[in-house]
Amino acid sequence: MIRVLAILLAFVAPVAFAATEEVVGALSQNKVSITANFDGSEIFIFGAVKRTAPIPEDIGPLHVVITVQGPRQEVTVRRKERVLGIWVNTDSVTVDEAPAYYAIATTGPLTKILSETERLRHGIGFDKAIRTVGARADVEDPESFTEAVVRIRQKNGLYTEADSAINLREDTLFATSVALPANLVEGSYTTRMYLVRERAVVGTTETAITVQKDGFERWIYTMAHEQALLYGILSIAVALAAGYIASEAFRLLRR
């Protein structure tokens, strides 16, 4: 009887331990304001593993994966081809969902520490975050268009993947920082932290960072979109005033 229990426990234990490992996380800031002098921002992400039992010894090492994902957008990707000697946009593919920003930080190489199915289930990785459903039929290689999204956004610092960028201490405390570039899009940026053991996610938590234009920038942007006519008239009025002042100043200087 005792032996049976022991065997049962041995089976249950790792699962039980895994289930009792929870992740608690926090960010240095939950709000990023794009103001006139906004030149990018760095977010410090840290967390801890909460346990009700000692650190399990008999299963694989603990890994942490952190993703920060910007608002999903529908984008049109265009490809240039040489037509009559000049480079012209020809084929285009509409990508239904591509995050405007995507950062991955891990404690090890992503594909090694997480299995393909787990990445798919949780949508972790550039290839899993971008979805193309309605690719136009006459394009032979729609994959090259999604690859282009990743390539271009990596170049612009919007997509980043930093293997081993998380500092994990004593399998309990972890921290990393993620750079937000100056060319950010407004919206809600979801930060997810995953605890990974034996290539599977065992715990996860989620927080959001709000990115929005603020102050003067916010005012201009809102007005340009919501009161376009007034904004246009004001722009012209400012230009006319500037022209008038310049002309008067010119006359005064000439005297």
């Binding site: 990707v77 490809r79 240039k80 081809e81 000049i86 480079w87």
Partner: peptide
């Protein structure tokens, strides 16, 4: 710029 092959043939535009 129009005649020489650009280093990046793809470009992203918002769908809207």
């Amino acid at each position: 710029d129009l005649i020489v092959q650009p280093s990046e043939l793809y470009s992203i535009g918002s769908a809207g």
